[in-house]
């Protein structure tokens, strides 16, 4: 059983910890870095509640080992807002009621952030494909799609 010092840049900050090789990235983020916005839902690569950006790409942090993130850049839901100013995606979720219980929301936001960074003006179909790895049991997805469209529009206008 090996242990490793893992150093990541997460939400712009350099953080390190000594972890066992088998530690999952999501547990590293939540239990060691104390960033508990990233949720553990199914723990079986299905629900997407643990989605974070690794080098700008959406990944399920329950299906990566923390050691694999050594030297890499991560972004979690805590990194979206700039101070008190909400990210356009967060604003969209608020404006369009893109959540009810909120459990899936951090993962949903990070998947949408990954999508918009690759495709800033997605069609409705592309948004639905883009969030296909995230389950929401409350909203029926309709308002989440609207929220992502709101963010895409706002970001296109430079907001």
């Amino acid at each position: 059983m090996s242990s490793h010092k893992v150093t990541v840049t997460i939400n712009g900050q350099k953080r390190s910890a000594e972890v066992e090789a088998r530690m999952l990235l999501v547990h590293f983020i939540r239990d060691y870095l104390r960033l508990t916005g990233t949720h553990v839902g199914c723990d079986t690569t299905s629900c997407g509640a643990c989605t974070v950006l690794l080098e700008g790409q959406a990944v399920k942090s329950c299906t990566l080992f923390a050691v694999q993130a050594e030297g890499k850049t991560l972004q979690t839901v805590e990194g979206l807002a700039q101070g008190t100013a909400l990210h356009p995606l967060q604003e969209g979720f608020k404006e369009h009621h893109g959540l009810q219980c909120g459990f899936c929301t951090p993962g949903m936001l990070m998947s949408a952030a990954g999508l918009l960074s690759r495709n800033p003006r997605p069609s409705e179909e592309e948004i639905r494909w883009g969030i296909a790895g995230n389950l929401c049991r409350c909203t029926g997805y309709q308002n989440i799609v609207k929220a992502v469209q709101f963010a895409s529009d706002k970001m296109a206008k430079g907001g």
């Binding site: 997407g48 990944v59 990566l64 883009g130 296909a132």
Partner: peptide, 12 residues
């Protein structure tokens, strides 16, 4: 390829 799992899984 677009039918494989979901976007996050396809990213890895």
């Amino acid at each position: 390829v677009r039918m494989i799992a979901d976007p996050q899984v396809r990213n890895r």
